[in-house]
Amino acid sequence: MTPLRIALYQGPEGSGTPERNLGLLDEAARDAVSRGARLLVCPEMFLSGYIIGEETDRLAEPADGPSFRRAAEIAAEHGIALVYGYPERDGDAVYNAVNVLAADGSRLTGYRKTHLFGDYDNKHFAPGATALAQADIDGVRVGVLVCYDVEFPENVRKHALNGTELLVVPTGLMRPYEIVPRTIVPARAFENQLYLAYANRCGAEGDLEYTGLSCLVGPDGIERARAGCGEELIAADVDPQFLKASRAANTYLADRRPELY
């Protein structure tokens, strides 16, 4: 079981446009591959920006829309799997969504944020109705949540019980909630015995200041890579052998007594 090197892109600063952000995706993919990564994870609402107000409706695209087609070209050109956030249109509804692409550009799965945070999310997005989205990438079972979703322990436990080995969480976390990447994310990884990749935005957008602090945390609760507060790409390994040994030593999942809960 060969380790899977993944890269997390913390950026961009500001909203930009889908065209500009797809250009940044191309650059990040090239950088990630140069570091040996086979999976690149980008933040929540990466393609359009997050705090874009009424532009959300105009910029929303189907899951297989023009931005997906360009992202698929980038994945295939660089030979790297991609995870990125975007506003997804489905009929009259718009979702805070994520696409997961294989290294050949094919779409493996998608996910819609299920737990909407605050007035902004609830005004501009419909909540997703499917809790579990997973895909196999280079032999690793990858699951997806978005930002606020990871702060609900039930969400992460559902992934752990359904075989997720690497949980990727595109995020747009703002100050003053640094407790999430510093404390909650490592705790979720440890109590559920999985790797957790938390890819946040950075800088300021609208009246929000993002925390940055993107990270990859192992099943031992120890960070394998940690970003600062600015635009940055970090990379580290997900090691299936280490995960197997960690699960054997830390038997939270086997020791559960669900009949009591």
Rank of each mutant, 00 (worst) to 15 (best):
A254G: 13
N162D: 10
L196M: 13
G23K: 00
R89G: 07
F46Q: 06
A129V: 14
T183S: 13
Q193R: 12
E73P: 07
N250V: 03
R201A: 15
T17M: 14
R226G: 00
E178I: 09
Y261V: 13
A254S: 15
S246A: 14
D31W: 08
R58E: 06
R257E: 09
Q193W: 05
S106I: 04
G206K: 08
D255N: 14
E13C: 15
G79Y: 15
A197P: 04
V169W: 00
D149Q: 08
C202R: 01
T164Q: 00
Y252L: 12
T164S: 09
D104I: 05
D220F: 00
L132C: 11
D239K: 05
R35W: 06
A204S: 13
I222G: 02
S67T: 14
A189T: 09
H159E: 02
V144R: 00
T2F: 04
R141P: 03
S246K: 09
I184E: 07
R201K: 15
G16A: 10
A71W: 12
P43F: 02
E165M: 04
A60C: 07
P18L: 10
I80F: 05
A189Y: 06
R188S: 10
R38H: 10
A245E: 11
G203I: 00
I6D: 00
R58S: 08
E191C: 02
I52C: 14
R20K: 06
V217R: 00
G79C: 15
D239W: 07
D138G: 11
V238T: 10
A81N: 03
A126H: 01
C147N: 01
A32S: 10
D90E: 15
F117A: 13
I184Q: 12
E61F: 07
F190K: 07
R224P: 06
A187K: 11
A160H: 05
L82D: 01
D64I: 03
L194W: 07
E231R: 03
T56N: 01
D31L: 08
I184H: 04
L59I: 04
R256A: 13
H78W: 15
L233W: 04
D207Q: 11
V180C: 04
D239H: 08
L8V: 00
A37R: 06
G53R: 11
K113C: 13
E61A: 06
F125P: 01
T183C: 08
A131W: 10
D149F: 06
R256F: 14
V100N: 05
E54K: 14
G163K: 02
A76T: 12
R175Y: 14
M174K: 10
